[in-house]
Design a protein around this nucleic acid. Structure first.
Lengths: 120, 120
DNA sequence: TGGTTATTTGGTAAAATAGCCAAATACTAT
DNA sequence: ATAGTATTTGGCTATTTTACCAAATAACCA
């Protein structure tokens, strides 16, 4: 792996790290439906508003969002347009996986009478 | 946000967390070109083989790969087929962004004679 | 001006992650 | 069996990330 490849991989990793938190993923999915002001997220997310702001800063630093201040409100917009399609795909896969897992668990139940759920 | 949505977001987050490390992203991109044995990764990645193994375990637990043991070798295969397209898209975006950043830096250089590079 | 709301930033403690070594497992071959 | 290779797992620090509080900024309004 040469230097350029390494730099590219690390840049992609930054994007993925920014996405890899439930609160930030929620924000991204909301933004996929249109721009939102910080205040909306502060209202919707059960965490300190400073925490929400820091999550938004992570998204901004990763280049995933654009920002526009209007009056005293700050609006965030999704920048990387390929994200929604990808997140949908992941969503389908994890839904299938968990369905498959359930089937396996049920099989085990039928055959072995194992009662404990799969490890979280 | 209801419970089901929350569970789904957290499941997607697990996938993204698994992807969000340069070594694991490298592994995923290699696997996108076809199955590989652990030994190949151990050889290619500059880290202890136990570290490589643990990264592979993360991918496995996230449901991103399938595993097949043949003889004393263990082969990993990519499971989530939408990944390569997505990673390509991210790659393009980060390439553009860094190009844009370079242009901005150059402008600053011309106007202000700022010499330090942008913060890593 | 002073007060109020929206948002960001600094600091810190707690939790999660990554990496290494050593040890355990699993297979193969002698 | 014994030894050798491939891989995983346990245990331990070091680093990174997260969340909260408090304080700083910024824009608005009385």
């Amino acid at each position: 792996m040469n230097d350029e490849q390494k730099v590219l991989i690390e840049a992609k990793t930054e994007v993925l790290k920014a996405l890899a938190h439930p609160t930030r993923l929620y924000i991204i999915e909301e933004l996929a439906r249109g721009e939102q002001c910080v205040c909306k997220f502060v209202e919707a997310i059960k965490a300190d508003f400073s925490t929400v702001s820091k999550h938004l800063a992570v998204l901004k630093n990763a280049g995933l969002v654009d920002i526009e201040k209007r009056g005293q409100l700050v609006f965030y917009q999704l920048r990387m347009q390929c994200l929604p399609a990808f997140l949908n795909c992941i969503g389908k896969e994890v839904a299938e996986n968990s369905a498959a897992r359930s089937r396996i668990i049920n099989r085990q139940h039928r055959h072995n009478k194992i009662k404990e759920p799969m490890e979280a």
